[in-house]
Amino acid sequence: MDAFFGGESWLPVAFVGLMGVSILLYVILDGYDLGVGILSGLTNRHKDKMIASIGPFWDANETWLVLAVGLLLVAFPFAQGVILGALYLPVAVMLLGLILRGVAFDFRAKVDAAQKIWWDRAFFGGSLLTALSQGYMLGLYILGFERTLVNVAFAGLVAVGLAAAYAFIGAGWLILRSEGALQKRAVGWAKVSLWLSAIGLAAVSIATPLVSERIFEKWFAMPYLLMLAPIPLITGALIIALHQVLKALPNHNDQLSWAPFSGAIAVVFLAFYGLAYSFYPYIVPEQMTVWEAAAADESLMIMFIGACIVLPLIGLYTSFIYRIFSGKTQDLRYY
């Protein structure tokens, strides 16, 4: 245990864990509604139903991003300036995207058809912009924020990969929550976005150990190689299995309609685990560890106690909401 904590306080580790959980939940939850936003640009017929499927959830989904960045600010005050400063412009672009899609959601339901088209475009554009900028930031983060031409190209590739991954999660969500013509379209979208995301994932997996000797050691030195080999192997197997499942969809009994979304969650989890393993204990890659960046223990403790009490409650009422709005999506109406 001592090796894991580096002989130092466990609280910063607990908080980097909490932040990891927030980011993971964000990528899955806002991932599906960003994905639905991206896919909404590909169809006119199904737009209303697609957006209705995420209506009750998107706002709470986005709150996980607020929690994640909040934890970065409050638990790691000495890393936040370095990370967010290095990502100044992509952060601003992401915020623009989040603003556009967040308000478009509400505006489009309240205006006439002539203006609705513009809000629909804002919803699509905002969702895509958000996804691309988040992927771009992930790419830069992996490469330690160094902006060479090659790095920017790599970050661009990750941006497209993450947008595709969100689209896949969104398509999986739609397969689960819709029926008929829309479900059929969603299967088609899933087939394409699955392979685009797989390319992005492969690029990240290859690049990460190459840019850092430390990360290379962590993965390829014995006995870690054997212990970690299952991660890429299972991920690969899952992607092939998802490809096969999609061929069998949609079908009459709606069998396996849960599989693409669940598979997407599993892949995201594995990819995230791999990244977390690579970078821990660094919070700014190769520059600052979680202990160097952390706030005072007393302050972390106050927050940790609060989080332990409140997070289970949040889980409880979130599951309550998913129960209320369960099943295939109906047209959303205010009453």
Binding site: L71, L73, V74, P77, A295, A296, S299, M303
Partner: peptide
Amino acid sequence: GNIAGPLLA
């Protein structure tokens, strides 16, 4: 941050 952090959290 030790003060602002917990309040924001």
